[in-house]
């Protein structure tokens, strides 16, 4: 009985906490978006020019047709991974696939948190918030020190390292997760590799290739689970 009471209290407390995060998150995103849009108009006003409406609409059409569907899919896929707080923060601070998602997954793995639990949401939010703070501070320091840092960061010797941060990240993570569940990984890996070899559009648009790769993996994972052949992941 005592355990049930504690569980009810925990869930009630957590629901109330999440409601506060929703409010805070919406205000935070709203204010930031208005400020970022205002930036372009303020710059225009500083130099007596205005953004071109036709140029904006034409550019937005070309950009939106690609990136809005991608954004919707990213939202549908990543929001459940990140939970309430993690989603607001990650979609505000960006760099989702190359930083926030791997960071949150790594934190979840180390903490042993299970999806859909309050603990998982807390770990995700703490992880994404910490990651965003560290990135913001590094970028701020980098911008302040841009003049002395520029020769080092743009040096030809170190260029291969900085150009290959993302391959290093996904090489390390790929191995970790392939070992976790090779049964899910094998077929999508073979199919995606063949597609990338023979279809240039697939290998050149990784953000879109994620969708079929992810759907295949989810389908195989669910199927194996239903057949009782997946084991614990």
């Amino acid at each position: 009985m005592r355990g049930e009471e504690l569980n009810v209290d925990k869930n009630t407390y957590f629901d109330s906490f999440n409601r506060q995060l929703h409010l805070l998150g919406k205000v935070m995103l709203g204010v930031s978006f208005v400020a970022m849009i205002a930036f372009s108009f303020v710059v225009g006003a500083m130099y007596d020019v205005a953004p071109s409406l036709s140029g904006f609409l034409s550019g937005l059409l070309q950009v939106g047709i690609i990136y809005y569907p991608v954004a919707i899919v990213e939202f549908l896929v990543y929001a459940p991974m990140l939970g309430v707080g993690g989603s607001y923060l990650a979609f505000l601070t960006g760099n989702l696939t190359n930083l926030k998602i791997p960071c949150a997954m790594n934190a979840r793995e180390l903490a042993g948190a299970k999806t859909g639990t309050p603990e998982n949401e807390i770990i995700s939010t703490i992880s994404v918030a910490t990651s965003a703070i560290v990135t913001t501070l590094i970028l701020a320091a980098g911008v302040l020190l841009m003049t002395p840092l520029q020769p080092l960061l743009s040096s030809e010797t170190l260029k291969p390292a900085f150009e290959n941060v993302v391959p290093a990240l996904f090489g390390a993570f790929g191995l970790k997760y392939y070992l976790k569940s090779p049964k899910i990984a094998v077929a999508p890996f073979v199919i995606m590799t063949l597609l990338c070899i023979f279809v240039p559009a697939v290998r050149n648009n990784t953000s879109i290739a994620i969708i079929p790769a992810g759907l295949m993996c989810i389908g195989i994972g669910v199927l194996l689970d239903k057949m009782g052949k997946l084991g614990d992941i």
């Binding site: 790929g174 997760y177 990984a185 890996f189 590799t193 990338c196 992810g214 759907l215 993996c217 689970d225």
Partner: peptide, 25 residues
């Protein structure tokens, strides 16, 4: 534990998309 499976599977898909693109390139 379907949520957990979907999350791990989606992440494997994410890694696969990137690694396959390196092989394709």
């Amino acid at each position: 534990n379907i949520g957990n499976i979907a999350m791990v599977a989606m992440f494997i898909g994410l890694c696969t998309a990137y690694i396959s693109s390196y092989i394709g390139t």
